[in-house]
Write a protein that binds this DNA or RNA. Structure first.
Lengths: 181, 181, 181, 181
DNA sequence: AATGAATGAGGCTTCATTCAT
DNA sequence: CATGAATGAAGCCTCATTCAT
């Protein structure tokens, strides 16, 4: 594992466990097993580090979810697949998930970066809009639909961090019942 | 307005806008128009202040939601009423809502307090369980159901802070479709 | 016991147990069972309080020692009597003794007060000088003699706070052997 | 001079002149010509600094006194030699001596450290006990003897900080007369 | 005279950042 | 590149003192 990733990984774990501001650069350096000065060769400041970490995780997350999209499949299938992937992400990458949950709204994240990472998920928007046109999901504002299911799924998995396949099926079913026509 | 509430109010606004850790006690004092020392007559430490603020808001929130519960009504009505109240709370108390959204998971909130505030919502649990017995809502784990709709509704209203009555109806319908049998 | 003495007494105990600076005015007020403001009716400031306490104790100490002086007795007897009284003072008033031991040199005590309290013991000086003239004690500088025996006796009793009569006799004998001719 | 010693030295002088509690860390830093933060690289807290300074001085003091012990010499000579060294220490290291005098009993010094530094002087105890066995000094409790002469000598030199050789001889003689048989 | 809430200067300590090695 | 000692601004908190009641 390269040194930059080492640092980001150490930072993520500490942030999740103790909060961004309660985690000092010294502490990150100790966990990453490098000198404090070294970190400043990779990240110009703590703020930069936090923003880069945020970007890294969001990119990883969006890739994980979107890479299962198969345009051959039906819209319903595609939507449900993204949900399953979202749930799977939490199970496979609990720390990254917790990070997103906790610091998504951190005031340190620049507004610009926040907007950029939102765009990573734009392919989802198209799917939902196609779904609406096909009449298989409710004709609501797309952002509304997305927020609803994202909130629902995230909260579900957070409240029960160790889901088994039946739990996953149950949550996916509820989400589908919520938005389908 | 009494001085203690002044302080809590100033703190809440600053916390929501700039984060708990980025908000200094000096800053809160300036906003609350009192000396720093005065705050320590009411709250033994910043941590205590944060915890008391959390409790205050959670109690206010739970009262607001639960006070519309009418045992005479059908379970479906009662469930939907609580959702409408939850949405109304966000519209009427946007800062308090944002506070809950942001700091619900703050590592500063003591585990004990977190548990205590959870119990404030226990009446909801009974309603859902009656609903399950009556067969009108899905036979899922109650905490799962609650998390799902809570997450969904919160995310919905957060993504669109100025909802009109139709939006509210739409969200409530989605939530109901999600959990009904 | 009057209120002023109450305050001085509470202050003395706290100072001895925790140090002058570590003892807050609030704490003294709590122990003296009066309001903080009340203390300021009796002592203009903490510094004044400390200085008055110092004076009070030193006066008490000097009176205790000097009141046994009997000009009818021989010089040797008078000297030894003061030592016995000094030892007795420690046994009877351990807290006051500890206070003297600890804060005798406190930088808060004003130089003037320190000089004034020194004069309280001036009768002793005359006795030693008479003793030198009579040739029964060593012909040293009087301050030297006084310091020597005072240091010796204080250290003795401090190292063994619960002396029995034989211990007292032993210390007195050593002191006498030290200065006698 | 190394930086740690610089800090300890600055601290010692300020403590002696103004008291431990009246001396702020900022002040010590200014005198030591370093940043405040630098001090915390060497001492984890003000309390630690005070304790380490105490240890340093006590070790220096005990070494200074004990290094003249010569088992070839008579007990009387050995005892008197340690006294002369103690007096010499005060003359050569007046600030260190004042520090011992003033803060020996500071409530900040940990009880454990106090016990440890006492043991530094254990060789003295053996000498006195040999002296008692040989019948050349009074058959008192050893700690009593030690306290007596230590208190006497310290007080003597403190009351007259610039002693000449005759004064030293006089004090040593008084001390010897006090304990000899 | 008695009280204690209010105040803010100042204390200890942390920590992001720099820079000489 | 890597390191970590040095730095001082800024944070939390204490506490002597005041003043309105």
């Amino acid at each position: 594992m390269n040194k930059r990733d080492n640092i980001l990984n150490a930072a993520m774990h500490l942030f999740v466990d103790h909060g961004e501001q309660a985690t000092s650069m010294k502490w990150i350096a100790r966990e990453a097993e490098c000198g404090i000065g070294t970190m400043y060769n990779y990240f110009a400041s703590k703020e930069k580090l936090i923003n880069e970490l945020y970007l890294e995780i969001k990119v990883m997350y969006s890739r994980f979810i979107l890479e299962v999209l198969d345009p051959e499949k039906s819209i319903k299938h595609q939507i449900i697949d993204t949900w399953r992937r979202a749930l799977e992400f939490v199970l496979r990458h609990p720390v990254e998930s917790k990070y997103i949950e906790l610091f998504c709204q951190s005031p340190i994240i620049s507004e610009q970066l926040r907007r950029e990472t939102m765009e990573l998920f734009s392919p989802l928007i198209e799917i939902y809009e196609t779904g609406k046109k096909e009449g298989i999901i409710k004709n609501q504002d797309t952002l509304q639909l997305l927020s609803f299911v994202k909130g629902a799924i995230t909260a579900s998995v957070m409240s029960q961090p160790e889901m088994n396949p039946e739990d996953i099926d149950a949550v996916v079913l509820m989400a589908w019942d919520a938005i389908r026509n």
